[in-house]
């Protein structure tokens, strides 16, 4: 019998055939779950130093200091100018 016994999991059961269409909603948040970390890829002290720098850079120093200059900003500015003129 051992020769005829294919592992269950190798042969997908018939139920999963049509299931892909049915399950359009979501596949149980699969894309949110962590994948197994590789065991053979343990950090060396060299990468350790390099990468802490990376983390330090994930956030910009201060969002307030980033100046925006685009259509919407100009629209706001023009509107203020109009208001000033109207109230002089």
């Amino acid at each position: 019998m051992s020769t005829t016994t294919d592992p269950v999991t190798n042969k997908e059961p018939s139920i999963s055939k049509d299931s892909e269409e049915i399950l359009t909603k979501k596949t149980l948040e699969e894309d949110d779950e962590f994948e197994d970390f590789p065991v053979d890829n343990w950090p060396s002290s060299a990468t350790l130093r390099e990468s802490t720098q990376l983390q330090a850079n994930l956030w910009e120093e201060n969002w307030d200091d980033v100046e925006v200059d685009d259509d919407f900003a100009n629209e706001l500015k023009n509107e203020l100018d109009r208001y000033k003129q109207e109230h002089q």
């Binding site: 970390f37 890829n41 343990w42 950090p43 350790l48 990468s51 990376l54 983390q55």
Partner: peptide, 12 residues
């Protein structure tokens, strides 16, 4: 980040 270099070319 302290354990892995995310931007390394051989990162898993």
């Amino acid at each position: 980040c302290s354990a892995y270099n995310l931007l390394g070319y051989n990162v898993h």
